[in-house]
Design a protein around this nucleic acid. Structure first.
Lengths: 180, 180
DNA sequence: CCGGACATGTAAAGAGTTACATGATTCC
DNA sequence: GGAATCATGTAACTCTTTACATGTCCGG
C-alpha cells in the first residue's frame, strides 16, 4: 500500500497533473517506486475521492484536458502517519538470482549473454545516479531535506555499485564453466 | 512469471510435497523468491496440468493425503529455456527509501524507531546467511554447482551488509535532525 | 483538415496476499 | 474420542501489467 503515499510525496514536492506525475515516476521517484500512468490515474481518482488531494485549475474535467492536483491537509497528515508507522520489509524477489540457482541444476548454457546485458544496464543506471549526485548534491549544501534525499540517492548508487561488481564476478565464474 | 520456475528448480533439487516446498520457500529458495503455500498449491496444479511435473506415490489424491511431485523432462526443458532467455530486470520497489523521501517533506518524527527495527532485522538475516556460508560452503569444495549457489548466497550476504551499513548511517542522520 | 504529440482514461488478465475450509494422523 | 498438528485446498481481494480507447491541441 505504498503507491498512494508515493503520489502524495510527489505532489507535495510539486503539484502536478497525471502525465507530469507519470514522467516523474520514470525518473526520480520511480527509481525506488515505479508506477505506470494507468496506476497513477486510478490512484489519483481514489485519493481525490478520499479527500486527500484536490484538483487545481477547475477547468471542465474533460477527457483530453490537463488536470493538476495538490495535496490537502488530510493527505499530508496521512502521509506523515504512514511515514512514521512501523512496517515490515517485504520479502525480496530477484529473478536473476533465481536463474542462477536454476542454472546450478539445468546448466549455464545461454546465460552469459543476458548476464552481460544486465551488467551493462546496471552500469548505465549507476552512471545516471552519479550524474544526479554531481548535479543535485554538490559539497556544501546542508539542509535536512538535502541530507535525507542524498541518503536515498546514495542507497541507489551503492546498490548499483554492488550489482555491477557482483555481475562482473558472476560472468567470470560462468565463463569459466563448461556449458554442460 | 517466475514462480513456476522457482518451483521447478526446487523440485529438481529434491522431489517434494506442497508443504515441504512451502517450508523450503521459508528458507533457502525463499530468500530471493518468496511464496505462500496457497501460491504453491495453485502453481503445482497448473504445472501438473501442463505436463511439467507429475505426482509421485500414486496414493489416492484425497484432501489430507500427502502428495509428492517430481519434474518431468518437459518441465526441465522449460526451466532450461527460461534460464537462458533474456529478461529485463523488474523495476525496484523499496518502501523504506520511499518513506525517507516522504520524511524529507513531512518530517522525520517517529521514523527512528522503525529504522532501528529494520537494522536489527537485516543484522539477523546477515548472521543467518553467514551461518549458512560457514555450514554449506567451507573452503575447498569446488564443483560448478557449488560455485553458482555460493555466488547467489554471496549476493544475499553483500546486500544485507549494504543495508546494515546504510541503515546505520541513516539512523545517525535522522537522530541528528530536529524532529520538526 | 490531418497527423502527431499530449492527456486521460477503461478493460481484462496475471500475480500476490489474506482469510477461511476440510480432511487425515497422532498423541494423550 | 478430543485436541493438536499435518496437509491440501478455495475464495475473495488487492495490486500490477498490458492492451486498448478516446478526446484535445498544434503545426503544417
Amino acid at each position: 500500500m505504498s503507491l498512494p503515499h508515493a503520489i502524495l510525496t510527489a505532489l507535495l514536492e510539486k503539484p502536478s497533473s497525471g502525465l507530469e506525475l507519470t514522467r516523474r515516476f520514470d525518473r526520480s521517484i520511480g527509481y525506488f517506486w515505479s508506477a505506470t500512468h494507468q496506476q497513477i490515474y486510478r490512484e489519483l481518482g481514489r485519493l481525490e475521492a478520499e479527500g486527500h488531494i484536490r484538483a487545481l485549475a477547475p477547468a471542465q474535467p474533460a477527457r483530453g484536458q490537463k488536470k493538476s492536483y495538490e495535496v490537502l491537509p488530510a493527505g499530508r497528515a496521512e502521509l506523515a502517519r504512514w511515514t512514521a508507522a512501523a512496517q515490515d520489509p517485504k520479502p525480496h524477489r530477484d529473478a536473476l538470482l533465481l536463474r542462477l540457482r536454476a542454472a546450478a541444476v539445468v546448466g549455464t548454457a545461454g546465460l552469459q549473454a543476458d548476464l552481460g546485458r544486465h551488467l551493462e544496464l546496471h552500469r548505465r543506471q549507476l552512471a545516471e545516479y552519479e550524474e544526479i549526485e554531481r548535479r543535485d548534491f554538490p559539497p556544501g549544501r546542508d539542509t535536512a531535506e538535502d541530507r535525507l534525499r542524498h541518503l536515498v540517492l546514495r542507497a541507489g548508487i551503492d546498490l548499483e555499485t554492488f550489482w555491477t561488481q557482483w555481475l562482473t564476478q558472476a560472468l567470470a565464474e560462468v565463463a569459466a564453466m563448461p556449458s554442460e
